[in-house]
Design a protein around this nucleic acid. Structure first.
Length: 215
DNA sequence: CGTTCGATGCACT
DNA sequence: GTGCATCGAACGT
């Protein structure tokens, strides 16, 4: 089971388009027995120095340097003393923007992901057909499940152990809302997610008033 | 159901 | 010293 690795041209586009098109694509990390992946079901756009929630809002710093680099690279940072968050850099060099991956529908390497999350092993019989949707729910949880940390910062998403591929999966209906967990920049509806997907935690699915249909 | 709050490390001012 | 693009346990209703 393999798909087409998304090329750099995919990322070198307006960030809202990239965020929307990443839904239904597969984020993959690792090789062989250490490979783990999941379908992207929730993402957020962070766009430019004028976006107060974007890490580039205060101009270039050492941490946010990847945002100013070419598209198609990973921007991973450490937050709240315990979580790694993974982004795909978008737009063009010198235009700092990225898409934060917020939730996955687990696909490959579920046993490995369970181990990394500290979840108990499951009896083989109970295993069949059941997808553990909590494994990659939330940006901090999915990086832990996939084994992504600061070592993956700046990796080339078009040619490294971390990439996104198109397996021709059709995502369900998509909606937009304001972004989660930020104190500024709430005026932008720059979060996109699969409606009613179980990997998108309920209290974060946003109220109907907050959501507008996807185009 | 809902909200609050502590953990925990580091980039940035 | 301050403030996080978080998580989950512990509360209150």
């Amino acid at each position: 089971m393999s798909g087409r690795v998304l090329p750099r041209t995919f990322y070198a586009r307006p960030t809202l388009e990239v965020a929307h098109d990443l839904i239904g694509k597969v984020l993959v990390h690792g090789r062989g027995r250490a490979l783990a992946s999941g379908v992207i079901v929730e993402a957020e756009a962070y766009i430019g120095e004028d976006d107060p929630a974007c890490h580039a809002s205060a101009g270039p710093t050492r941490r946010n340097a990847p945002l100013y680099g070419p598209p198609g690279f990973a921007y991973v940072y450490f937050s709240y003393g315990m979580h790694h968050l993974v982004n795909a850099v978008t737009e063009g060099e010198g235009h700092p923007a990225a898409v934060l991956i917020r939730a996955l529908d687990p696909l490959d390497g579920v046993d490995l992901m369970r181990r990394r999350r500290g979840w108990p092993p499951v009896a083989p019989r109970a295993h069949a057909g059941h997808v553990p949707h909590g494994l990659c729910r939330g940006p901090g949880n999915l990086t832990r499940a996939l084994g992504i940390d600061l070592r993956e910062n700046r990796l080339d998403l078009t040619g490294s152990r971390l990439w996104v591929e198109d397996r021709g999966l059709a995502p369900g209906p998509v909606a937009w809302s304001s972004r989660i967990g930020i104190r500024v920049g709430r005026e932008h509806a720059w979060r996109v997610f699969v409606v009613d997907h179980p990997a998108v935690s309920a209290h974060r699915r946003a109220s109907a008033a907050d959501v507008r249909p996807a185009g």
